[in-house]
Design a protein around this nucleic acid. Structure first.
Lengths: 189, 189
DNA sequence: CCAGTGATGGGACTTGGTCTCATCGACCCT
DNA sequence: AGGGTCGATGAGACCAAGTCCCATCACTGG
């Protein structure tokens, strides 16, 4: 087995996505993933704490969102700060060249409960982080939590649209529009 | 080992909670849980699909919430329907005699990532179910999703307060008050 | 008293995940 | 060129979660 080939984690993640699509997450073994990447089980668990995480490793979304919120214009309404952060996120992670990959990945996630579970935890933690970031900006705690929840909803909606669209719209505008609609829905009562 | 003692799943759940408190979730083995309950690993997995679920088995919360939403007065604003459902939930599950148990259970949950993960998934699915129930009542899809997210937030807030309170307030009023505050926070913008 | 049924026990087996140690490859230094 | 160091990898033992199959026991009804 050739050693010293670069990008071991990337190769593992790619192999994993392929195999999960071919045989399903549950019917794929960590050993199989490692072998397809030309590596071993040992190396897999060196880079990923568990089998699920191989689909989540890329990129620290939380940091970007928190920074985006922190650096938004200080006069902004909480949801505007969230919108700015989502824009930053879109520019970094949801670029046009990653759309196909994101769609494949999301299809695999949706097909398996274990993976959905991991995603749910990430989303909960991320929502909490967003709330805290807003709170650090002076937004009252409860308002911050509300804005964070709505922000997460905006993200979900915009992401689904970004994945689905056959015409390739950018994530940023989709998020802006979803935010406007969510804001309207939250106000009408 | 004496067979045919009743309430096997309840005994298993009680033993699990005790052991998780004593040694932590990760340091407790399914075999240990089963032994403390006077049973075996086989029987444990007959009643619970996995180790985490032993803390979630009691009661189908989703069904109650969905029914509560469906049977709320039809003129109600979406969040009012959610409030009615939370009331029903409180009367059934969050009764005074379960407060101590709920607190112990929640402490265990909060202490372990694997358990928080399971809880996060349940909450995501529950939020989705609430949204769909509202949608079936004629609430527009997006409004329903917003109301469901806010309803989940209300639940989280009220539940934390219900657990924490040294003076024993009922869950229902706590939820009503939390809902009023969330509603105000969502409106101010 | 006996057969049937349902809950339990027992144990083999697979896989995820941890841990420790050996090994290899590249790079550096002389 | 050659030896030493260091980081990345491989190998394999080991434990616990979860699955599966089958034996066994207790209770029931005839």
């Amino acid at each position: 087995m050739a050693r010293w080939q670069p990008d071991a984690p990337e190769r593992l993640a790619a192999a994993a996505l392929d195999l999960f699509e071919e045989h399903g997450y549950e019917n794929t073994t960590v050993i199989e993933i490692a072998e397809r990447a030309g590596l071993t089980k040992s190396t897999f668990f060196r880079y990923f704490p568990d089998k699920r995480e191989v689909l989540f490793g890329a990129g620290t979304v939380t940091g970007l969102l928190v920074e985006g919120i922190a650096s938004a214009p200080s006069v902004a309404d909480p949801l505007d700060a969230v919108a700015d952060a989502l824009d930053a996120l879109g520019r970094t992670f949801f670029t046009a060249d990653r759309r196909e990959f994101s769609g494949r990945r999301q299809a695999v996630l949706n097909a398996n409960t274990e993976l959905r579970e991991r995603e749910a935890l990430k989303r909960v933690d991320l929502t909490a982080s967003m709330g805290e970031a807003l709170n650090r900006r002076g937004v009252p705690s409860l308002t911050a939590r509300v804005a964070a929840k709505l922000g997460t909803l905006v993200w979900e909606i915009a992401f689904d649209q970004w994945i689905d669209t056959n015409n390739s719209e950018d994530f940023g505008p989709l998020a802006r529009q979803a935010l406007a609609e969510v804001r309207a829905a939250a106000a009408v009562r």
